[in-house]
């Protein structure tokens, strides 16, 4: 068993890289069956009347983008394909989230033939605290934004903003969250006082934290990481990047599981032989 203790970590990295790279390039085509939480998110969005206005909160930055961009793209595609209109915003602290929103909305808007100002608006980001900005937006959406969108255009010139004066004019808030501020701020400052339905997605690591809020009804639905994005792609019948990497994710997790089992066998045998105490 000493051989298990002497394995160079770089060999483990190489095995993991091969395990995820091969199915990425040559997918096995494992089927993805959407979970109940993802179906719930889809159902909430699917039931909205056409033309409803939804706010999508891009509360993540490039550090979480490899995991959350596919989810954001899948959700925005779903919203646009249901003919819903989108206002994007990023909570204080996620200044780079506004850039993520800009990149993704521009890409999907071209795909779906949507127009800026009529079908979507990017409010951008404002400095401050969510505890101040979100309640202020509940009273007047324009004031905390200084009356302009992310690109400096006056909000009064944008057709979509004619009917949206405050947060309670929205039919739904969809969040893509990777930390703090995130869904807890929306629950505290928007859901509880105004009862605007709230759905969204987090990184996989954030999912166990978010689940109790969904169980209590404070979140109407929650997606977790790349798997959540793949579920939405299946439900919306719009395959994207998340589905292409699902095989690789499954194999990668199996390899890590194998490493964990081997490591523990090595540890237990060494301990049994008296090499390790405790």
């Amino acid at each position: 068993m000493n051989i298990l203790e002497r394995i160079d970590r770089r060999i483990l990295y190489l095995v993991l890289l091969l395990a995820v790279a091969y199915p990425l390039l040559r997918p096995f085509g494992l089927s993805v069956k959407p979970g109940p939480d993802s179906k719930q998110v889809f159902r909430v969005i699917d039931e909205l009347p056409r033309g409803s206005v939804v706010m999508v909160s891009f509360d993540y930055d490039p550090a979480a983008a490899p995991e959350l961009d596919p989810m954001a793209v899948a959700l925005v595609r779903l919203l646009f394909s249901k003919d819903l209109r989108i206002i994007t915003f990023s909570q204080p602290g996620w200044e780079l989230g506004a850039g993520q929103a800009d990149r993704i909305l521009r890409q999907v808007a071209v795909e779906k033939g949507k127009e800026y100002g009529t079908d979507w608006v990017n409010l951008g980001w404002r400095a401050g605290q969510s505890a101040v900005i979100l309640p202020a937006m509940s009273e007047d959406l324009r004031r905390p934004m200084n009356g302009v969108d992310m690109y400096g255009q006056p909000l009064v010139n944008l057709k979509l903003m004619d009917q949206i004066r405050k947060l309670s004019d929205l039919q739904l808030i969809v969040g893509i969250w990777s930390g703090t501020p995130g869904f807890q701020e929306y629950i505290s400052f928007v859901y509880e006082p105004l009862k605007i339905p709230l759905v969204g997605g987090t990184t996989a690591i954030g999912l166990p934290v978010a689940k109790p809020y969904m169980k209590a009804g404070q979140l109407a639905g929650i997606l977790g990481g790349m798997r959540g994005a793949a579920d939405i792609e299946v439900l919306a019948d719009q395959p994207g990047r998340a589905l292409t990497v699902m095989d690789a994710q499954s194999l990668g997790l199996l390899v890590i599981l194998g490493f964990l089992v081997l490591g523990n066998i090595g540890y237990l045998v060494t301990r049994w032989r008296g090499g390790v105490k405790g």
């Binding site: 995820v20 790279a21 990425l24 979480a64 983008a65 490899p66 995991e67 961009d69 596919p70 990184t203 996989a204 690591i205 954030g206 999912l207 166990p208 977790g224 990481g225 790349m226 798997r227 990047r241 292409t244 990497v245 690789a248 994710q249 990668g252 997790l253 890590i256």
Partner: peptide, 17 residues
């Protein structure tokens, strides 16, 4: 477990790029 899944997702997202 979720942390490992999250890191694999990040790696895959980046390999996708």
């Amino acid at each position: 477990g979720q942390a490992v899944t999250s890191r694999i997702s990040t790696l895959l997202g980046y390999l996708g790029f």
